[in-house]
Design a protein around this nucleic acid. Structure first.
Lengths: 87, 87
DNA sequence: TAAGTATTTAGTTATTTACTTAAATATTAG
DNA sequence: CTAATATTTAAGTAAATAACTAAATACTTA
């Protein structure tokens, strides 16, 4: 649902996580190393991003790799684009 | 700032206001008639949308007309587009 | 199997958000 | 000038959010 997407995007930490994942896939631990914030807090943010389908996670052994799920970004572009189309 | 924009977009009432303004410019009162919510609440939402530069307001007599400010939507598209460009 | 590492879940708390009603401001019309 | 209309500002409140620490889960390795 688009509401979850916009809610997810409304937090700067979560948008920064997306920026990091744009460069390459990362584990939860690697992601949390980029922030002055506890691992559980980052874990919660990741959960929200996942629920909004903005990221995907894949378990590999004891690590969980996170990656961007680009499909939802298309929806965002479509949403925003409607507002500056000529009527 | 992009943060204000995403915060503004994170609420469904505010997104619906943008949808209404996409069709035509409206006064604060006309906007609030579309919602089961007090006028002051809508006024607060409009203030947030204005701070995020998503809408523009113009006073005409005792009325205030609100209209879309399409420029920021370009920024949203640019932001989202970066995430599905080929590297 | 026991210890260590990676990550999440649970429980708590302070802050922010979205609403309400009441009061204030500004414009128009009699 | 007074009353009516349009809108915002102020003050208060319940619910949601974002953070923390402690505990639980899952995998790996000695």
């Amino acid at each position: 649902m688009l509401n979850d997407v916009f809610k997810a995007l409304s937090d700067p930490t979560r948008r920064k996580i997306l920026d990091l994942l744009k460069e390459k896939d990362l584990t939860a631990g690697e992601i949390s190393n980029h922030f002055n914030m506890s691992k559980p807090s980052i874990s919660q943010h990741l959960k929200l991003l996942k629920n909004a389908q903005l990221v995907h996670d894949e378990k590999k052994g004891q690590y969980i790799f996170y990656s961007l799920n680009t499909t939802v970004f298309h929806d965002i572009v479509s949403w925003a684009f409607r507002f500056y189309e000529k009527k």
